[in-house]
Amino acid sequence: MIVNQKKMQDLADNMLNAEEVQGRSLWADAAGRFMHNKAAVGGVITLLLIVIFTLVGPAFAQWSNEEIDWTVIGQVKTLGAPSIENGHYFGTDDLGRDLYSRVIQGTTISLMVGIIGSLVAVIVGTLYGAIAGYVGGRVDNVMMRLVDIFMSIPYMFVLILLLVIFGRSINMLFVGIGLVSWFDMSRIVRGQTLSIKNKEFIEAAIAAGVSNFTIIMRHIVPNLIGIVIVYASLLVPGFILTESFISFLGLGVQEPLTSWGALISEGAKTLQYGTLWQIGFPLFFFVITLFSMFFIGDGLRDALDPKDR
């Protein structure tokens, strides 16, 4: 009996002095689920390859994106086709400029538009929606009606006006997309905040005397992040498409800079001459980026809220 008691005492001591156990956070769980989704992981790898291509690709280019190859001009159909010998790996465009360099440069701009647009949406939209939802009452009403009014203005119209008034520049395009990107996000976040703010852990924080701002930042935003990430990943292709559309109209980036939309637009114009590579290469990058983005978004949604599948 005495031996047993000593054993029990030792066991109790061991338990108290045991090493700290590292918990499994909900993030770790979600990451595990994401890694098991083959399509999503494939999307991530494809996207990474494209990013690496835009970073490393210029080192192999023999022509810059604005140089005109005078030997090719006028005979683009025969001499401008993709070839390794003359350094035009992807061929040339109608003016004899190297398509390889132009696709790399266009990819950079299009990805940047997507990323900056969704960053603004995430930061502004999350804070705006979380504050409106948490404070509630009249503040919420004013803030959300304001968003309603903004949303009722056709944003393509605003974007085009901005570009016409302030001149076509890539910075103006960023500003324009940033201005309109966060409306939907703020609505989604507000809705989520309303459901989170009545949970008991928020009450517990209020009872402990935590300030409102800290409650939003410490308790509400981390519980929103899942939905915000999923939605942001689905927004990126939307912005790329918007920018492509604007560039397709001829209002986006300015020559000699280019983007996917501008490249596809040029390629579409010369389609009748049989220079298929001019539309083929930009379109290929455009399509695989959008596909991998959607696969990643899908994978994130499945990983972050497994209940809603």
Partner: peptide, 27 residues
């Protein structure tokens, strides 16, 4: 201080319990 009805709902799922218990101290 207050203790709540639903034990799991009264704890923030994104925080470790160390952070949860120490929140009043931090405040």
């Amino acid at each position: 201080q207050m203790i709540f009805q639903d034990p799991l709902a009264s704890l923030n799922p994104r925080m470790t319990i160390g952070d949860i218990i120490s929140e009043p101290l931090r405040t």
